[in-house]
Simulated scan of single mutants.
Amino acid sequence: MAPQNADTEMGDGLPPAVVEDLLSDDARRRALAILSDREGPVVVEELAAAVVAAREGCGEAAIEATDQETMAEELFTEHLPKLMATDVVAYDSMLGTVELRRRDVAPQRQP
């Protein structure tokens, strides 16, 4: 029997400190909630637009292209690497899509 660390959840869950870190960033939290709402993979640029729209409280069609591009770059450089390293999301570089793999980590989307 493997020893259990007090910081580790039961089963195959991530340690609470890791989950807390993943959810500590607003954009990452919004991206996870959006992925949780959608079935299947989402194109990263579409995810970026949805994150900005959620932050701004408007429709995705109202998002400026530069804001979408900035968020897509932020997703690629900051958020997706961290989420992929913890196996929370999977990224398909051939299609440019991301898919949620661990729904237990994703927060519920807020209205």
Rank of each mutant, 00 (worst) to 15 (best):
M1C: 11
A2C: 07
A2F: 06
A2E: 13
Q4L: 09
A6P: 12
D7K: 03
D7Q: 07
T8F: 07
M10L: 12
M10H: 08
D12N: 09
D12E: 09
G13W: 14
G13D: 13
G13R: 15
L14R: 15
P15A: 11
P15Y: 04
P16K: 12
V18Y: 03
V19Q: 06
D21G: 11
L23Y: 14
S24C: 15
D25V: 05
R28I: 01
R28L: 02
A31V: 04
L32N: 14
A33M: 02
I34L: 06
L35R: 05
S36T: 09
S36P: 06
D37R: 15
R38P: 14
E39D: 15
E39K: 07
E39Q: 09
P41T: 00
V42P: 01
V43C: 01
V43T: 11
V44G: 03
E45W: 14
E45V: 10
E45F: 05
E46C: 12
E46F: 09
E46D: 14
A48V: 02
A53P: 01
E56W: 04
G59W: 05
A61E: 12
A61V: 02
A62F: 04
I63R: 12
E64T: 10
T66N: 03
T66Y: 14
Q68I: 09
Q68F: 12
Q68A: 09
E69Q: 12
T70P: 12
M71Q: 13
M71E: 15
A72T: 08
E73V: 00
L75I: 03
T77V: 11
E78T: 09
H79N: 01
H79R: 04
K82T: 03
K82E: 15
M84W: 04
A85Q: 01
V89M: 01
A90H: 14
M94W: 11
G96K: 10
G96M: 10
T97A: 01
E99T: 15
E99M: 15
L100E: 01
L100R: 02
L100Y: 00
R102K: 06
R102N: 13
R103H: 07
D104K: 05
V105D: 01
P107V: 06
R109D: 07
R109C: 02
R109G: 08
Q110K: 11
Q110F: 09
Q110I: 08
P111I: 00
P111M: 00
P111T: 06
